[in-house]
């Protein structure tokens, strides 16, 4: 074995540790963890896009689409988590596939804003639809897992386990994808698209593929969120501020490593939770302030702190 992928090893250790921790974690912490996994997965999709130099300010579109798709299926009588999450993911991916034909032609800020514009259209449709509870949204019953119908705390424990397994697989998949030729093309597209095309690859196709990937994982995050919270509503699922939060998490995490997005998502949840607790009227101030501080002082996200520590560790002291 000449080469062992450290990220894969690290992810696996984290996965096993969290799997074990699931049974001991404080309930509120598990809930924060669940949300971090859901939001982190969305950020993972954004990371893939970001490596190509593209940022979407509208991924609440796919997040909301996945969430509402899963939630609406429960209204039709489907309650199996595997089916709901799979369907939510797939439907969001399909939408990304369709919109991708248009969006893959745009770069830079135009790409970001067109995404935002599309997400606002979804928001408008939901608010207008009384059958879906308009701004109130509607509640989602606790899911079953291949016939197993947990109750009480077991719902969250099982859901966490379920989410953890899939998140682990998705993260591994994305990581391995980024190492393939097509995945590695990201940076090339970002640096010089036309040269990529001279090499015989279609930059638009590369982007389109990544876009669909990001839509799929955002749909997954949304479906998980709908099941975890037991409620969908447009303001917390499809509003432009939600998209802003995803970009926030991506910046917080940095794009150095797939695992970073989950750490970023967790840090985000914790900042928000504690800001809410200690400054009930001024939590936005704290949230915005932390974001500014990170942008100014940690331009490459929290992951860069660890890289720096590692370098310091390696450097022999004179």
């Amino acid at each position: 074995m000449r080469h062992i992928d450290k990220t894969v090893v690290g992810l696996t250790i984290a996965f096993l540790a969290l799997l074990f921790a699931d049974f001991f974690m404080a309930e509120w912490m598990r809930f924060i963890g669940l949300q971090s996994l859901a939001r982190g997965t969305v950020a993972l999709g954004l990371l893939v896009l970001w490596r190509t130099g593209l940022v979407s300010f509208g991924h609440a579109l796919y997040f909301g689409f996945g969430a509402y798709a899963a939630a609406m299926l429960t209204l039709l009588g489907y309650h199996d988590a595997f089916f709901l999450v799979f369907a939510g993911t797939l439907i969001a991916g399909l939408l990304a596939f369709l919109l991708g034909f248009l969006l893959r032609r745009y770069r830079a800020i135009f790409f970001a804003l067109l995404n935002m514009a599309f997400s606002m259209i979804l928001y408008g449709v939901i608010v207008k639809t009384e059958a879906l509870g308009s701004t109130d949204g509607f509640s989602v019953l606790a899911p079953t897992f291949l016939g197993y119908a947990p109750e009480g705390e077991a719902v969250q424990t099982t859901l966490f386990l379920f989410t953890l397994v899939f998140t682990y697989l998705i993260t591994l998949g994305v990581h391995l994808y980024l190492k393939t030729t097509l995945g590695g093309m990201s940076m090339a597209v970002r640096e010089n698209e036309i040269r990529v095309e001279y090499l015989g690859y279609s930059a638009e196709k590369v982007i389109h593929f990544k876009y669909v990937l990001s839509g799929l994982v955002a749909g997954f995050g949304g479906a998980i969120m709908a099941l975890a919270i037991g409620q969908v509503d447009p303001d917390s699922m499809a509003n432009w501020t939600v998209s802003g939060e995803f970009v926030f998490i991506t910046i917080l995490s940095g794009i150095g490593n797939v695992a970073a997005t989950f750490v970023g998502a967790l840090v985000f949840e914790l900042i928000r939770t504690y800001a809410f607790e200690y400054a009930p009227q001024f939590w936005q101030f704290i949230l915005g302030g932390s974001l500014l501080a990170i942008i100014m002082f940690l331009p490459d996200g929290i992951w860069s702190v660890l890289s720096r520590l590692r370098k310091a560790e390696k450097a022999p002291s004179p």
Binding site: G10, L18, G33, V263
Partner: peptide
């Protein structure tokens, strides 16, 4: 290798666990 991959594991779980288990 252990040291570096531990980094991923440490952050993901350590942070969560430290807060999750202590704050009752």
């Amino acid at each position: 290798i252990m040291k570096r991959s531990g980094r991923v594991a440490l952050l993901a779980t350590g942070l969560a666990a430290a807060i999750g288990f202590t704050a009752g």
